[in-house]
Design a binder for these strands. Structure first.
Lengths: 152, 152
DNA sequence: CTTGGCAAGTTTGAAAACCAAACCCACCAT
DNA sequence: ATGGTGGGTTTGGTTTTCAAACTTGCCAAG
């Protein structure tokens, strides 16, 4: 997925935006780490899963660890970079819960063992929840002329 | 993208996870709202863009508004549901900034006009930043046997 | 009144990705 | 030997993607 602009959103999507990649990350975060589990739980065709796993390992998001020699077998674990993608999964889930499955969520998350996790994006500087109107974009790289009448 | 499990992450990705959809959302959020602008700024082929836009409008994420009759021309605006996807864009961008472009970010966001926006996912219940180890999953729907030795 | 240009798509034909099913390999248990 | 398991790779057919060319409706200039 090449983008016309230099952009971290596009860059991240180029890595994990292909079909099934984020579902693999979900599974691996939840503890399902073997090839056949990933096939079952994501629904990905085996060959597609194989290429995704290669890509994610190359990108340093997962690591392939042998859990048995003779027969040699592997599992896939999230690296630090992989765990750092959890916020993406949480915001995707929050949106789906609100706009797709409002009323009966397929899964509920518990936070610190004593309350429900309600994910919100806030600003680490001021602690406030981020609202659309409070954000202004400042391009630093070339290629960012926002050609629009309603440019933000 | 059909998933083997009922899941809000998979559901959301089924809607906005196809190639270019989130880049379209980025552009529309930034103010670029016409067809040709979206072609230029996302790099999507025209026909792909046309199908993505139809899908996003059908899903209620964008709305198609005529800005001129005779010649009839349209722009695409984010709905509430569309703006609610901004947290996803912010977390994707944050990850890319940290793991892809560390050091020279292509774009910086300003918050409330007086400081840099540093997006973090927190829990609305307790206000704490969400760390991987503090989260436990509680499936509510069928299809969620986490078949793993290391199940979380 | 014909030519040119712009915006928003649609059409076309070839290349790439996806898919399900079958296959392969190493090993272990029966 | 036979069957089962885990982790893939191969095969062949369907679906998407792609870039480029084309279409439609309108206005402006020559």
């Amino acid at each position: 997925m090449k983008d016309a602009r230099p952009c971290s959103i596009a860059g991240t999507l180029a890595l994990v935006g292909e079909k099934y990649s984020l579902l693999v990350l979900r599974e691996v975060s939840l503890g399902a780490r073997r090839f056949d589990q990933l096939v079952r739980n994501t629904g990905a065709p085996r060959d597609v899963l194989a290429t995704r796993l290669k890509r994610l390992v190359d990108a340093g998001v997962l690591e392939k660890v042998a859990y048995s020699d003779r027969p040699r077998r592997f599992e896939y674990r999230p690296t630090r970079a992989g765990l750092d993608l959890e916020p993406v999964l949480l915001t995707l889930m929050a949106w789906g819960d609100r706009h797709l499955n409002a009323g009966d969520r397929p899964m509920v998350l518990e936070h610190s063992g004593d309350h429900e996790l309600v994910p919100v994006v806030t600003c680490a500087e001021c602690g406030e929840e981020v609202a659309h109107d409070d954000v202004t974009a400042h391009p630093r790289a070339a290629g960012w002329t926002v050609t629009g009448p309603t440019a933000a």
